[in-house]
C-alpha cells in the first residue's frame, strides 16, 4: 500500500513542479525578449489594454444581466478581439519575419486589416 501511494504522490509533485518550472522559465524568456525592443513593448501594452477593455465590456454585460442591444456589444467586443489577434500576428512577424514579406509590408497589411476591422465595427454598432 505505502509504496504505491508514494510514487503517485511523487508523480503529482514532480508534475506540479514541472508546471511551475515551465511557467517561470517562459516568463523569464519573455521578459528578456521584450526588454530591449521598443516595438514589442508598444505592441504588448496595446494588447494588454485591449484585453482589459474586452473584459470590462463583458463584465458590464454580466452586471447589467442584459445584452441588449447585442450588436453594439458584439461590435465592441469583436473590435477588441480582432485588434488583439491582428496585433499578435504583427508581433509574430516583428520577432521573426515571414518568408517573402518585409517588415514594412507586414505593418502596411496590419494597418489595412485594422481599418477594415474598425469600419465593420462602426457599421455594426449602428
Amino acid at each position: 500500500m505505502v509504496p504505491k501511494t508514494t510514487p503517485k504522490k511523487a508523480d503529482v509533485a514532480s508534475s506540479a513542479s514541472k508546471f511551475s518550472d515551465t511557467i517561470s522559465a517562459s516568463y523569464k524568456a519573455y521578459c528578456k525578449q521584450v526588454s530591449g525592443d521598443r516595438q514589442l513593448q508598444l505592441i504588448d501594452t496595446f494588447c494588454a489594454f485591449l484585453v482589459a477593455v474586452g473584459v470590462i465590456q463583458f463584465l458590464f454585460v454580466c452586471a447589467a444581466k442584459d445584452s441588449f442591444p447585442l450588436n453594439a456589444f458584439l461590435a465592441g467586443f469583436s473590435a477588441c478581439v480582432g485588434q488583439f489577434v491582428l496585433l499578435v500576428s504583427l508581433r509574430m512577424q516583428v520577432v521573426n519575419s515571414f518568408m517573402g514579406i518585409s517588415p514594412q509590408r507586414a505593418f502596411g497589411e496590419f494597418v489595412l486589416a485594422s481599418l477594415v476591422l474598425h469600419f465593420l465595427c462602426l457599421h455594426f454598432v449602428n
Binding site: S78, G82, L86
Partner: peptide, 21 residues
C-alpha cells in the same frame, strides 16, 4: 506555424464580423 495563426485568426475575426452585417 505562425503563418497559419496569422492567416486563420485574421480570416475568422474579420470574416465573422463581416458576415453578421
Amino acid at each position: 506555424s505562425t503563418r497559419l495563426y496569422s492567416a486563420y485568426s485574421t480570416w475568422y475575426a474579420i470574416g465573422t464580423l463581416a458576415s453578421m452585417q
